[in-house]
Design a protein around this nucleic acid. Structure first.
Length: 446
RNA sequence: GACCCUAUCGUCCAGUGGCCUAGGACAUCGCCCUUUCACGGCGAGAACACGGGUUCGAAUCCCGUUAGGGUCGCCA
């Protein structure tokens, strides 16, 4: 039996969790879950000056929101800890000493520790990019001189990314390094480091970068770049996971909507593209609406809860569920919910200008009164009966149904747009419908 | 500058030599459904970067050009 797969996501807490990072984490997670491996979270906080507590929290929050749980790492522990590089100094010291003892590293004039690059031709097989052959002797610095020996420890004692990254991958027994393509060109150096440290290199899978829709590099400021913007924007996490999975990976058939279980079952590196993916928020939004529209009611209520509470609406599940069911396929984002359902939970709902206009139209109040009279007497208070009665009334008075529909809708909701009228009336109940109609009549009477 | 990766509709993908007069999805534009707004249905426009090869045959293979991206840090 082959040794157990161990992958890791190694973010640096210097900003917000970026969608690119989230996707790297997702691909690692998917690969681990698919093959029964271990997913490690390691915080690469060697640059004390740039790390922030806030960024660290954003990483944890973002990953948890996306459902990417880690088997080893901060807050969960594990056998290879600590999982913060800032706490692993002794380990790095030990490996650096090994390099110094074997003449593979030396201290330069400025006091920094440098790794003597072998600069030999080298090959490796990337799970995504294929067979790579690199002539290291050809590598040059920007000024045309041969590539300088890599610094592994600063003069001030701070450790450098490439070195600690490799040391930790050895110490944590990482078998597959899945990371952004920006590291493809760094991989030869990393392999040289593995060799110098006497460890076999892991398998590599370099996944394409995520660019803006216009092809420019996606920066933190760009819309949709920060995972936090989805949390705050009222997205369903499963939709965001689905969307970013499709950025650079394809199930090879025309499936678009894939649950995290399906993603786990179908993910492999053969399906990962080599071309940089352009980020399209519109499609992400569409997918989000699809998820919102089709998810089970219980899940919908759970996701909606925080937004409802934030708007000051207090209602138990029994009261909330039928109301949310009315707008589930209408709202594109959870953030819109309070606006859609607010009038269900207060008698003091506002009348929007266009709604008011409809109620002030000549005859509108008369229709409202006629409808209220008919509804007061109706036997069964359900959508079908309500609709039949309204249409019957329209026929009796020889007018279009719209003559009754608009006054009714605006009177009970204060808006011109909303859920299906009859279902909305059914949920509101006879008592509230009649009192709202009466109130509208007195409010808008000339 | 050196080295590396990439190149199909505006965007995400399918396509691994003949099934391609290139398929799906988002977006756009029509029409239908609906007397709200959405959803949904039907349809339209929209692409193989360019130039050479290889082959009976190329979106698919090779070379070059161009373009985009990446790496070459005492950032990660």
């Amino acid at each position: 039996m082959s040794s157990k797969i161990r992958v890791r996501f190694a973010p640096s807490p210097t900003g917000y969790l970026h969608v690119g990072g989230a996707r790297t984490a997702l691909f690692n997670w998917l690969y681990a879950r698919r093959h029964g491996g271990t997913f490690v979270l390691r915080i690469e906080d060697t640059d004390a000056a740039r790390n922030t507590e806030q960024a660290m929290q954003a990483i944890f929050d973002g990953m948890r929101w996306l459902g990417l749980d880690w088997d080893e790492g901060p807050e969960v522990g594990g056998d290879c800890g600590p999982y913060y590089q800032s706490q692993r100094g002794a380990i790095y010291e030990r490996h650096a000493q090994k390099l110094i003892d074997t003449g593979k590293a030396y201290t330069d004039d400025a006091g920094a520790l440098r790794f003597r690059l072998p600069r030999l031709p080298l090959t490796f097989d990337d799970l995504v990019c294929g067979h790579m052959e690199i002539d290291r002797s050809k590598s040059q610095s920007r000024d045309g001189s041969p590539e300088a020996d890599m610094t592994i420890r600063r003069a001030d004692g701070g450790w450098i990314f490439h070195f600690v990254n490799v040391v930790d991958d050895i110490e944590m027994a990482i078998t597959h390094v899945v990371r952004g393509e920006d590291h493809l060109s760094n991989t030869p150096k990393h392999i040289e480091l593995f060799a110098a440290l006497g460890a076999p290199p892991p398998a590599y899978a370099h996944i394409p970068l995520i660019l803006n829709k216009d092809g420019s590099k996606m920066s933190k400021r760009d819309q949709g770049a920060a995972v936090g913007s989805y949390i705050d924007g009222g997205y369903a996490p499963e939709a965001v996971v689905n969307y970013i999975a499709l950025l650079g990976w394809s199930p090879k058939d025309d499936s678009e909507k894939l649950s995290i279980e399906e993603l786990t079952a179908r993910f492999d590196f053969a399906g990962v593209n080599r071309k940089g993916a352009h980020f399209d928020l519109e499609k992400c939004n569409w997918l989000n609406a699809q998820y919102l529209m089709h998810m089970p009611m219980e899940r919908y209520v759970a996701l909606a809860r925080p937004w409802i509470a934030k708007a000051g609406i207090t209602a138990d599940d029994a009261a909330l569920t039928p109301v949310l069911a009315l707008v589930k396929e209408k709202a594109k984002f959870l953030t819109e919910l309070p606006e859609w359902i607010g009038f269900f939970f207060t008698e003091d709902y506002p009348f929007l200008p266009d709604a008011e206009e409809k109620l002030r139209k000549p005859g509108a109040l008369d229709r409202l009164a006629q409808l209220a009279d008919a509804y007061r007497e109706i036997a069964a208070w359900d959508a079908a009966a309500l609709e039949a009665k309204l249409k019957e009334l329209a026929t009796t008075h020889a007018v279009k149904a719209a003559e009754f529909v608009h006054p009714a809708r605006t009177a009970v909701s204060g808006k011109t747009v909303g859920p299906s009228l009859y279902h909305m009336l059914e949920v509101l109940g006879r008592e509230r419908v009649l009192s709202r109609m009466a109130r509208a009549q007195s409010t808008f009477a000339p």
